[in-house]
């Protein structure tokens, strides 16, 4: 079911064109985008596997830069590549930590707190300006 080693190598080279190492962080392939995290992405969305294989087959044998230029002109192929690569990259916890992203957190609203815009007068000038709508015309 999983991609072959050759397909993974091909994907890794393409992925590193999109996400090279930088900013003190690893490249896509170094972060596992063609390895462990590809498997996770395809487990979540198995329907991506076939179009990904189609995209890879279409540029088999091309150098990464040339392959990317071809894929860019194919919306379906470009769509699957630019879904799989960043998805795998950001699934890596070390990457999420490096960009300062903790994932979605519960941030309950303190409904008892006095609204800041009332306390500091932020809304005052809006109120002072008065109505900004056209009323219903009277016959």
């Amino acid at each position: 079911m999983a991609l072959t080693d050759a397909q993974r190598a091909q994907l890794g080279a393409l992925a590193d064109q999109l996400i090279p190492a930088g900013g003190g962080m690893p490249s896509a392939s170094e972060a596992g985008v063609a390895g462990r995290y590809l498997d996770e992405v395809l487990t979540s969305l198995p329907d991506l596997k076939a179009p990904l294989e189609t995209a890879l087959a279409a540029v088999d044998g091309l150098e990464p830069e040339a392959a990317l230029a071809v894929l860019r002109d194919d919306p379906a192929a470009w769509g699957v590549l630019t879904a799989v690569v960043p998805a795998g990259y950001f699934m890596n916890p070390a990457i999420r930590e490096a960009i300062g992203y903790p994932g979605l957190e519960r941030r309950p609203i303190d409904a008892t707190a006095a609204p800041d815009y009332l306390a500091d007068g932020l809304l005052d000038s809006v109120v002072a300006r008065g109505p900004v709508y056209r009323p219903t015309p009277t016959d």
């Binding site: 999109l18 090279p20 900013g23 960009i99 992203y101």
Partner: peptide
């Protein structure tokens, strides 16, 4: 966003 500078660009936008 793709290519060199990807990570800094993500950090610049995210949040």
């Amino acid at each position: 966003i793709w290519g060199p500078g990807f990570q800094d660009a993500v950090r610049g936008r995210l949040g």
